[in-house]
Design a protein around this nucleic acid. Structure first.
Lengths: 219, 219
DNA sequence: TTTTAATGACTATCCAGTCAGTCATTAGTG
DNA sequence: CACTAATGACTGACTGGATAGTCATTAAAA
């Protein structure tokens, strides 16, 4: 069961600069596969092509390693997303489409999608970390989404809706797809068709289910 | 850090009948708080007002206890939901509303909402359990949702949409809210307004974002 | 030759799972 | 009804295995 994958063939080479990132990458993989408690630091080290002692040269302990993985993986992404929204010119619908697809291609489809899973799983044991994630990622992510909705309403493009809970609801399908890959994808026959899923999702959200003719509520 | 909450004051009372349920309830609580690996069976036992040895009289080991918690918590709920949909008379929109609200009041708002969190967190360590959940809960849940969508399309009430991915996307906000409670609720100032959230979600899904006048795609 | 990155054997701790013994309950007896 | 014997639900100290974290030693680089 022990992982023996190794990243660098040469043992005992001195590579102070690149070790932290190699360890963080290996740690993300193992944490996502096994969860925090079940992850053995020896596995993380060997996956990074290094011994356990070396890991402790770069990270104080397991908990600090975990925190570093999360911070390192997530912060750049949210910053990138905020920048992208600020400079966008075009309809709110288009913006919504490209933000959703951007999240998917930068996070969802990569190993980074394991981080939300980690946070959710370990929120009970690391409330401090969950709070960090809540403040630094979720709040900012929701703000981005609310911004899109408000922009659409101001331009007369969107109906008048309650932006705050709607923004939240709109993150649901995106999160679901991230978690899906890690937890259930392997039981399905077909590969994940993320394209089709997100097209359906965006159509649903933009057009709604009810036919225009029936827009007035039924008796 | 050790939990000392006790459910029955009298030590050494013989209550063979009620022990399993008391243990399952305590185990659900602790598993949800801590995750599988970090849960100590001694905590589960003491929370059920019983010693660790007693726990082993009723459950073979930690893994079996975990499985029993999941099966015990989830199966009745999905069966109930299926029955409810079969007998419903009324518009698809109404059915959708009552199914979503039913899920929330039977699962989301209760401790049972911790089970999806458990499954997601432990899917790597218990693929067998994740598969059980996938087949017995998710597939059946998605089938229910697809049934509603197809019924709506047949009755001419809904647009023509791709039922399979749409059903999936529609479960996203529900799952999100369940996970939210357990992972982030405690960091918010206001209490969770589930009512408002689900109203916004259902409005979004039924009516869509775009204003009727702009139903034709923008240039 | 000196410095320090890297190693891996070692220790300390934690906890799942066991089992010999305890005692509340109840069936049996006078 | 009172008293005792038999039962089995319950207990908790103990063991074995696993692994987080340490540190004396090794060897690559400067």
């Amino acid at each position: 069961m022990t992982s023996t994958e190794v990243r660098s063939d040469q043992r005992r080479t001195r590579r102070k600069e690149s070790r932290p990132n190699e360890l963080l990458e290996a740690a993300l993989e193992v944490f996502v596969e096994r969860g925090f408690a079940a992850t053995r630091l020896e596995d993380v080290a060997s996956r990074a092509g290094v011994s356990k002692g070396t890991l402790y040269l770069y990270f104080k302990n397991k908990e600090e390693l975990f925190k570093a993985v999360v911070r390192n993986g997530i912060l750049p992404v949210i910053e990138k997303a905020e920048g992208l929204v600020g400079q966008f010119r075009g309809s709110a619908s288009e913006l919504l489409r490209s933000v959703v697809k951007g999240i998917w291609s930068n996070v969802g489809g990569t190993l980074l999608s394991g981080i939300p899973k980690l946070i959710i799983a370990e929120s009970g044991n690391f409330p401090e970390l969950a709070q960090f994630y809540y403040e630094e990622v979720i709040c900012r992510g929701l703000a981005v989404m609310q911004g899109i909705l408000r922009r659409g309403m101001q331009q007369g493009e969107f109906r008048t809706i309650d932006a705050e809970p709607t923004a939240r609801a709109m993150m649901g399908p995106v999160l679901l797809m991230m978690l899906w890959q890690h937890s259930f994808q392997s039981f399905e026959n077909e590969p994940l068709r993320a394209e089709r899923y997100f097209d359906s999702y965006l159509t649903l959200v933009l057009d709604g289910l009810q036919r225009p003719a029936l827009q007035e509520r039924l008796p």
